[in-house]
Nucleic acid binder design. Structure first.
Lengths: 193, 193
DNA sequence: TATAATATTGAATATATATTCAATGAATTG
DNA sequence: CAATTCATTGAATATATATTCAATATTATA
């Protein structure tokens, strides 16, 4: 009955999952379509039946990332320190459970900063700026002493890049012990009692 | 007289420098030999006169990294916290001055963890383990209260990966403000008075 | 069951990029 | 200055990998 349709969706997801895994481990350019196909257990030719090209597959992952994990990360009107604690905890929890979300976080960071990402994807990520709202939040926190003194942009970089570095490492060697999210927050924490 | 020889050395260094720059920005696979040649201002063919292959060029960079920046980073018998403060400060200073050393640090990290690095290079980095001595140092610091409690390996990961994440970012966007090395150390600092 | 639609493969093709090479120009040496 | 060696280029070749496609198997529909 609907078997065909469900099977197709499942197969697409398998491809997306394998692609995500390989893209973050090897990078876009070094990941061969045949690698992905092999990891799924299908011929390379068949992959093109599901996704028109390697770039389309990558693009779909980025689209998922924009809609999901990254979207949920947008700063709110929470107390600044609370936001940073909460976000770090969520990401690290995802990392520990090896979730799709955590890998997606790594993929997005790579796509954003690696010059090798396809041009069209670069375009999709234009205006996807996590630093501006983060800086605003940090300034707010500095005003009430919950965030340490220092260049707010530099603090934002320290926070996100530390998380990114650790997330990438965990994606590479999932068996290694995962740092505590509080340690990251201590990097930017103020010394207000 | 010796002009030829000096010119040759200078040219080799230009290639190494351009290669290092592009490898860390795009990754090994996505960096075209013609990109490197263009950045130096020579034909792609000529590059092969200086380095037999793209891989050989990469290999020479890694060799330089092993001998230089990474070698200097090996833990000593210093006070643990002092070592971490000192190392972070040195790396961040290098980053701020956009030195060869800082880029090399990024290259080495990438070569170590990215599965796409050429196999031979992987081999060269075998046994180049920065974590074992770091863990030992952390345990020593935990014993005298200068390093916080927690899984020593996880603390080592937090420290190195945070530095790596920030270094990579700075390599990508050198105009951004650089975090303070002390912030990183605060991540692992104990609360002994 | 017969027919149509879809999934799958493996081989063929296209494309991108690494690498080679013959030819040319510039520097060095005697 | 003549001869030789080295630097350099641009075009040709080799190689790796993305992509297409005709043929076949499988599943759905009537």
């Amino acid at each position: 009955m609907v078997l065909r349709k469900e099977q197709k969706k499942k197969r697409r997801n398998e491809i997306l999952s394998a692609g995500l895994d390989l893209f973050i481990r090897k990078g876009y350019a070094a990941t061969k379509v045949s690698d992905i196909a092999e990891q799924v257990g299908m011929s390379a030719g068949l992959l093109f039946h599901y996704f028109g090209s390697k770039e389309k597959l990558y693009e779909e992952l980025i689209t998922l990332g924009i809609a999901g994990p990254m979207g949920a990360m947008a700063p709110t009107d929470m107390e600044p320190l609370e936001f940073f604690e909460c976000t770090a905890k969520t990401i690290f929890h995802d990392i520990k459970t090896e979730s799709f979300a955590a890998k997606m976080f790594v993929l997005m960071s790579q796509a954003f900063y690696n010059e090798a990402a396809p041009q069209r994807i670069k375009g999709m990520l234009e205006g996807f700026d996590i630093y501006t709202p983060t800086v605003a939040l940090i300034q707010k926190g500095q005003a009430n002493g919950t965030i340490r003194e220092g260049n707010p942009y530099a603090l934002a970089i320290a926070y996100w890049c530390a998380i990114q570095g650790i997330a990438e490492q965990m994606a590479q060697t999932p068996e290694a012990p995962c740092p505590d999210s509080n340690w990251i927050v201590d990097m930017i924490r103020g010394n207000s009692i």
